[in-house]
Write a protein that binds this DNA or RNA. Structure first.
Lengths: 346, 346
DNA sequence: CTGAAAGCGCTTACAG
DNA sequence: CTGAAAGCGCTTACAG
């Protein structure tokens, strides 16, 4: 048809005109608001369906002063956060939970590792989110003051020293204690704990858990070393500990980001797992089951964490009062073959 | 301060009032448009910086009739597309390329595997993207007619039987030929190719490449089997082929989604790689280097693919005329230890 | 170079 | 129950 307008952008005005009602009335049925007669409502609903009209979300947003978006801030650069299923899973669960209640996710990540400024600016300036879920790493007072200044509801994933409410996290300390205790029970005597940077709260919590376990035994001893996530110097750490007389018979990778690297280093050094050295880790790997031996590890309830974060944020956005302003979830121990019971040699 | 308005939402009106100019003038400097005196421009720029004003993007969008968003449609559900680095990498590269020119990504995925309707509706209705990059899988005439109806520029990742222009892809056929030829040269004689569903274009292309290689030799023969990605029945396939007399000495996993499963099945059946059976794959794995033996594989230039897709879309959006309306990229062969040269037994 | 005004497509008190 | 009108915060011809 020639006269089929190529300008196929139906607006509320068109619908109103065709239905011979006011825009206000159409708006009311669009938003399922009361104050419209049954007949009128039906007529407009039919028309909308027939014409396949859908409202311009941008205009809705501007008029209603709500965006329908929630911002997710991943405080890492893509290369890094994609190396691990943690953030992708978190993100996809949040997206799904948000979609269920009509919200869209706006994702913002650090452009370079450790620099979250741009990520916050991107999301906050421009006023296009109703709330924010952010990873607590690298969250500083600068970002916080911006959040508070713009008065925007937010929930953190992971504790922050600066924030006392509205966060979700896991039982880092307790879980590490459980894992370490397992190693002790399996007969390992000299356990090396490799953790991330000590400036990160969950790292110090895990270290505490490690010491908690050791404090309950006289058979085993432990050593803690820290390294960066992005460029871990695990090889050096392990070699040093082997030379300096501690010579660990078990090593715990204190974060999902460190397991693989540790695994590689052990292979490179021709150290057999678990015969030469046991390996355990906090956090499981992507494709976990595909590694031999499977690595004994603490499993985080990432999906639950994501759902908890979204529910908390949603409550904040709609103004529901929260009874609990935090949510700390327990982890589980998954036993593989990488920490088999030690033969009586030591 | 008590009188520090909690309503801290600076608008263009406020800026105009303070600077004693009109909103139009502020808008012009905001958008770096000509038609403003140097002094006035400087004054306004300083004010904006001082007050840390940033314009409301939603209002900008509505007024300018541009969204600054581009939609990315991943035609899979999260559980599935996260099992493989392909989509996450694609997404993160597109996001970065888009950010460089001021665009934001709106992600939409299938809520259930194979059903992309909602993904398209979500992105297209509501008019909030200036263009779309979509995976070509499951793209049907229904989605296409919607895209054309709304007259929205789009670029496909992967060929589609329905679309003759504006897509990017890799050399599926040629790459598979290269891989298969490598296996033949390594001395493998009975090669099993396990591919995805034959309804998918890249699967049939790869199968063609497989046959291309075989057609150049009289030493080796091949068999092709198809399976679903989400729930591959690889164990059955391999067992059948072992029983029925073909008894392959090499297997090619025809897609990244099938490698791991194949690997697991071989382990389960106590088949050693490569001594009992060689394993090669199209597409590398996440954490590729961490598997022993490393698997010989075709490597796709995913990052290049993503950049090519975005560049093409961007050109379409700004109305630049394209010389090439498609982009087919070559792949490379990565040789691991999973297809070692075969001892002369057969 | 600058301003006044119309308009983007909605929502939402306010009347009636 | 329904409509008319103002307003959300911008942009963009159009004058001058």
């Amino acid at each position: 048809m020639v006269d089929q307008k190529s300008n196929n952008k139906l607006t509320i005005k068109d619908i109103a005109a065709i239905a011979k009602v006011s825009k206000g009335t159409v708006s009311r049925v669009l938003n399922k608001k009361p104050g419209v007669g049954d007949k009128t409502r039906k007529k407009i609903e039919d028309l909308i369906k027939k014409l396949d009209y859908s409202p311009n979300l941008i205009a809705q947003n501007l008029a209603s002063q709500k965006t329908g978006n929630i911002g997710v801030i991943i405080p890492h650069q893509a290369e890094y956060y994609l190396s691990n299923p943690y953030w992708p899973v978190l993100l996809s669960i949040i997206t799904k939970a948000a979609a269920d209640v009509g919200y869209t996710i706006l994702l913002s990540t650090a452009l370079e590792e450790g620099n979250v400024d741009s990520a916050y600016d991107f999301i906050i300036k421009g006023k296009r989110v109703d709330g924010i879920i952010a990873g607590s790493e690298f969250l500083g007072e600068k970002q916080l003051s911006t959040l508070y200044y713009y008065n925007i509801p937010f929930v953190l994933i992971g504790k922050s020293p600066f924030v006392q409410e509205y966060y979700v996290d896991i039982e880092n300390r307790k879980a590490t204690e459980i894992l370490t205790t397992h190693l002790i029970h399996q007969g390992y005597r000299r356990i090396l704990f490799i953790g991330g940077p000590e400036t990160i709260l969950n790292v110090t919590e895990r270290v505490q858990g490690f010491y908690d376990a050791l404090s309950h035994t006289t058979h085993s001893m432990g050593i803690v070393c820290h390294t960066r996530y992005e460029k871990p110097n695990i090889k050096m750490i392990i070699q040093n500990q082997m030379k300096n007389g501690f010579s660990p018979d078990a090593v715990i990778a204190g974060a999902g980001d460190l397991v693989l690297c540790t695994l590689m280093v052990l292979r490179e050094l021709n150290i057999t797992i678990p015969d030469d050295m046991a390996l355990a880790s906090f956090d499981t790997l992507h494709l976990y089951d595909y590694f031999t031996p499977r690595i004994t590890a603490i499993h985080q309830p990432v999906k639950k964490l994501a759902r908890a974060a979204f529910e908390m944020l949603f409550a904040l956005i709609v103004g529901k009062t929260l009874i609990k302003t935090d949510c700390i979830l327990p982890c589980t121990l998954r036993i593989g073959e990488s920490c088999r019971e030690k033969r009586i040699i030591s």
